[in-house]
Simulated assay, not measured.
Amino acid sequence: MKRTPLLFFLFLISIALIVNSCKKDNLSHIPGLLAGKWQIASIEVYNYVGDSKISTDVLDTTCTITQYFIFNSDNSCSYVNFQCNSDTTTGRWSLTANKLFLTSDMVCNDTTKSSGGTSKPFANAKIVTLGNYSLVLETGDVEPNYSATKKRRVMRYGFIRQKISSTQ
């Protein structure tokens, strides 16, 4: 008679363990953190040979128009005034399976190219920092394995989250 409550308790514990051990998919909070409007705060270019930094340049120091990168929850995105051009570029964004890289098919007008034209600046962007109020993306030669003698160029974009008012 006294074993019945003990068996019932062990049964409940085993059910709780089975339910709790089920694999849970899509637990990442990164897409939710990324969604929103981000204003550019800084653009720096790091030039390396191997892993030795040889120079740092700061871009857009004379730009007087505000640049925004906007991520929507439906995986669409837009960049307003890229490289200080008065235009808006749209595209799609996604995260890699490990959630460490942002990929975007957005094609922007790029005045930094010597021949002018366009570029896909965020085709493969490493997420360095992502929080409630700041986002740092690195693009360019961000592969983890590189030659010790190869020149590399990494562009680092720093963004600050902006509130989106109901009138925008």
Rank of each mutant, 00 (worst) to 15 (best):
I70R: 00
F71A: 04
N72I: 03
N72F: 08
S73I: 05
D74Y: 04
N75F: 08
S76A: 10
C77W: 03
S78M: 13
Y79P: 01
Y79W: 12
V80E: 11
V80P: 03
N81Y: 02
N81K: 04
F82E: 10
Q83T: 09
Q83I: 06
N85C: 11
D87Y: 10
T88C: 07
T90D: 13
T90P: 00
G91N: 07
R92E: 14
R92V: 11
L95A: 13
T96P: 05
A97S: 14
N98K: 12
K99I: 08
K99S: 12
S104D: 05
S104A: 11
S104L: 00
D105M: 04
D105L: 09
D105G: 08
D105K: 01
V107N: 13
C108K: 02
C108R: 05
C108T: 04
D110A: 02
D110C: 09
D110R: 00
T111W: 07
T112P: 04
T112D: 09
K113H: 12
S115Q: 10
G116S: 09
K120T: 12
K120C: 07
F122I: 11
A123Y: 11
N124R: 04
N124P: 12
A125E: 00
A125S: 08
K126S: 12
I127D: 10
I127L: 07
T129D: 11
T129E: 10
L130G: 01
L130Q: 01
G131F: 13
Y133D: 12
Y133L: 06
S134Y: 07
S134F: 03
S134R: 05
L135Q: 02
L135D: 00
V136C: 09
V136F: 02
T139R: 01
T139E: 00
T139Q: 02
D141R: 04
D141Q: 03
V142R: 01
V142A: 10
E143G: 14
E143Y: 14
P144A: 11
P144M: 12
P144K: 02
N145R: 09
Y146H: 04
Y146E: 06
S147I: 01
S147V: 03
T149L: 06
K150P: 01
K150Y: 09
K150L: 08
K151P: 14
R152I: 07
R153I: 14
M155K: 11
R156N: 13
R156C: 09
R156K: 14
G158N: 03
F159K: 00
I160E: 03
I160F: 05
R161K: 15
Q162G: 01
K163D: 09
S165H: 04
Q168N: 12
Q168M: 10
